[in-house]
Design a protein around this nucleic acid. Structure first.
Lengths: 217, 217
DNA sequence: TAAATTTTTGACCAAATGGACAATTATTCT
DNA sequence: AGAATAATTGTCCATTTGGTCAAAAATTTA
């Protein structure tokens, strides 16, 4: 229900807009809205500045479009958490999906991180309504699981915060991670997944169940 | 061993420089280096732009000074981790110190977050040498504790990454946190500390020890 | 193919911004 | 007090940047 604007566009328009958005993601994720320039975006997509402004009315417009175009995809894994599923599997799956996004879409991650870091001027509304509502629902599911004794007693909200923080850390702060750990990316994310799997298992299981899943290396 | 430059400064110089740095932290943490302006800093500290440039040779110079002036303080809690102490206490203490900094120094946290998010142009060197060395040492301590059976088997590096990520999340992404959880700050950080204490206890303890520290609400 | 429409671009503009500088004011020193 | 020094500021400048616009080029339509 997102990319509505693509309806009556010619081939050439669709192509150019897509090109611009890709380049814009590149530039915005590296520099942020305010210090990204139209010239940089223009260079990145091989168009001229006025040509870009023929397709988008302003820099802010491009930024808004890019951000919004990615939003649904960004929140998608959250929707996949099913109250019908096995609690720990669902939450491990969510963590893995988020970690995968950090690996495969670091630019998107940085774009959102930068936006929120600077006060989320364009998204505060969405955060406080749409995201919040979805999260409330999922937290209710977690509370239900806890009350059924299927999950150790945890705060759903803080659980989500920590999953977001830990998974996105590998994308947003990759410079720091790589300065400290000079592994290749595959190895790094493999380690991260093992670490976070272990962490969540310990966090969500009852101690008696834990002995089973704790493996000594 | 940091604030060396304050040596031969007059009272008036020390005062003004301090004023400027405070205002600069304010502005840089909100806007980042590139989109912070000297005018904003000038307004924030009640000086004129040329007057600021009388004390610092350039905007970049101010940024560098602020960042460096905060670095030692920022890494300090890491140094306090003592191999003589009780492993879990030491690591819980570290987490609490970091969380406290997120609560009391969110601007500093955002400043560093922004710097690293955009590639750490001014700090990459420090990250890869000084921070990395310190962290290597502390990870060695953790490995030692693990080999002595005083700590569950965890990757020290990923443990630190996750502590950083989870604690700083409450400062760096406070807009998002507050959009979802409308508690007051004290309450929020109290909850976070309980959650993270529980998380670390579960992560670092052996399952048999866990039953003791797991309290049901 | 010729007219109509869409796309592209070079040239230009106004505002914002980092910074220079000389002149003025305040402070310190003798 | 008066000279010397330090601090402050108004004015100015060059560059960057978002954006305009009219003309040219390319494409589509009839």
């Amino acid at each position: 229900m997102n990319a509505v604007a693509n309806k009556n566009l010619s081939r050439i328009q669709r192509e150019k807009r897509s090109k611009i958005q890709k380049a814009a993601l590149e530039v915005f994720s590296e520099y942020g809205l305010r210090s990204a320039t139209l010239d940089k975006i223009a260079t990145a997509c091989g168009l001229t500045k006025p040509n870009i402004l023929y397709y988008y009315s302003s820099k802010d417009q491009i930024y808004f479009e890019v951000l919004n175009g990615l939003l649904d995809e960004w929140v998608a894994p959250l929707h996949k958490i099913s109250k019908e599923g096995e609690p720990i599997d669902e939450l491990l799956g969510y963590m893995k999906a988020k970690l995968k996004m950090s690996k495969q879409k670091p630019k998107e991650s940085k774009l959102f991180a930068n936006e929120i870091l600077h006060g989320a001027p364009l998204m505060q509304n969405i955060l406080a309504t749409s995201l919040r509502q979805t999260l409330d629902e999922k937290v209710a599911v977690i509370d239900h699981w806890v009350s059924e004794g299927k999950l150790a007693n945890v705060s759903g909200y803080h659980l989500f915060f920590s999953i977001w923080a830990m998974t996105q850390h590998y994308a947003d702060f990759d410079v720091q991670v790589k300065a400290i750990l000079d592994k290749n990316e595959d190895e790094l994310f493999q380690e991260a997944e093992e670490y976070l799997t272990n962490l969540l298992l310990r966090m969500l299981s009852f101690p008696t169940e834990l002995t089973v899943s704790t493996k000594s290396s």
